[in-house]
């Protein structure tokens, strides 16, 4: 894959990481975090690590999201920063 595409993916990565830290609504932050982990998986696949990318996609978009949502369901949704 040409490196320019990967460069774009990295920019999406950083932007989604920053946004998920800025957002005050934790549920929205978690959704952004799943975008972030999916971008991580895409970068892994563009670097040729199919196994790891597969795992990261399954885990990051599925299980981690579920855990966070459950935790927010059990605690609170708003954050002061």
């Amino acid at each position: 894959m040409p490196w320019e595409i990967e460069f774009l993916l990295f920019i999406i990565l950083i932007v989604s990481a920053v946004i998920s830290l800025i957002l005050k609504n934790l549920l929205a932050a978690v959704v952004t975090l799943t975008i972030y982990s999916f971008t991580v998986a895409l970068i892994m696949i563009s670097l040729g690590a199919v196994d790891v990318g597969f795992t990261e996609a399954v885990v990051g978009a599925g299980v981690v999201g579920i855990f966070f949502v459950v935790a927010i369901f059990k605690t609170t949704r708003k954050s002061y920063d």
Partner: peptide, 23 residues
């Protein structure tokens, strides 16, 4: 960050940074 959830998110970020470095 003051919120514990945000701390956890930061934790997952440094983890994936280290993982991508290995890849």
């Amino acid at each position: 960050k003051r919120n514990l959830m945000k701390k956890i998110m930061g934790m997952s970020m440094i983890q994936s940074a280290a993982i991508l470095f290995w890849i």
